[in-house]
Simulated assay, not measured.
Amino acid sequence: MPNDFNQRVIEEFRAHHGRVGGPFEGGRLLLLTTTGARSGRPHTTPVGYLPDGGESVLVIASAGGAPQHPDWYRNLLAHPEVTVETGLFTYPAQAVPLAGEERDRAFARAVESDPGWAEYQAKTERVIPVVALHPIAVDGPPKSSAGSLSEAITIAHDGFRRELALIRKEMSRSGPVLGVQLRANCLTFCHGLHNHHTGEDLMLFPGVAARHPQAAPLLARLGEEHERIAELVAELREVVGGGDTPTARGHVVRLTATLEAHLDYEEEHLLPLLAAMEAA
């Protein structure tokens, strides 16, 4: 039977490319579509997630500490191939429940970032599962919810801004030693930003240059800013490995200021060119 609350969240998530209000506002949320264990029909559920340092993410089958596993977990046990929606991209993934010490370490990371997970575990006798969602490689570009390239860039930029704000908030309440999950959050952000800028450098900017030769100074400036941001990202990766929160916080503040200025400039000057190309 459909859950009215979940359905409202799903509709809001899709309408606003991953941004939702209510209890999920400001958190990390994805839409997970599984295949019904008995019905064989698709079922979509909003699920909070934990970054895992790269392409994969972790989801936790807490069900608020209920005595039984949530339906989506039972579904993926029967059908491990799932679909993940991020707000911008939709992709297939392989769901792998973690076991033993690997599960315990991942759950400890979750508790470190939010003690509420421990409260859920204390409410139930079952061991709350942790599941890794590993993207499955497909041919061609990923499926996007954006209607145009310029919209896709805007959505991606908004996602980077939201994630940086989350990381800054998490660091503000972190102790002197950087937690393991917070390190994973930083590394995942660095990985995603690197991929985004690499795609712009290798594909987007040459395409714009071919259509708009007069944009060469703009593209050169954006490329130089990418290099500066890459330096800041490399520095953040290094200090995150050291585990000192105040040092990492300072690097995140510098990266935030530089990146936000870059995103604002790109949106002001590059997006109109893309819109003109799309309208032609």
Rank of each mutant, 00 (worst) to 15 (best):
G159H: 02
H134W: 13
S144Y: 01
S172N: 14
L219S: 02
R28F: 08
L273Y: 03
Y73D: 00
R41Q: 15
E224T: 07
D114K: 04
C186M: 11
D139E: 15
H197A: 03
G243D: 11
R254W: 05
I155W: 02
P42N: 08
L29H: 08
A137G: 10
G87Y: 00
E119C: 06
G179L: 03
H262G: 03
H17Q: 10
L50M: 12
G159Q: 02
K143F: 11
G175W: 10
H262T: 01
L149W: 04
R249S: 11
A220T: 14
R228V: 14
L222S: 02
R74L: 15
H251E: 11
D104M: 11
A146M: 05
L133A: 03
R237E: 15
G54N: 10
P141T: 07
A220P: 05
A110R: 03
G22V: 09
E25D: 15
V84T: 02
G175D: 11
L30A: 12
M1E: 08
V138T: 14
Y49I: 13
L88D: 00
I153N: 00
V138Y: 10
N75T: 10
P115G: 03
A137L: 13
P129L: 07
H262A: 02
G243Y: 09
R162K: 12
E231F: 09
G243E: 10
G241I: 06
L259G: 01
D139V: 12
D52Q: 08
H194I: 00
T256P: 04
T33M: 07
R105F: 11
E119T: 14
V177Y: 08
G27A: 10
E268A: 15
A248T: 13
P42F: 04
H197K: 14
G64K: 00
H79T: 09
V253G: 01
L58H: 06
T34G: 06
H79G: 06
G250D: 04
G199F: 00
W72F: 05
A216I: 05
L98W: 07
P70F: 04
V20K: 00
E200K: 01
D139L: 15
S148M: 03
G87C: 02
H226C: 00
L133E: 00
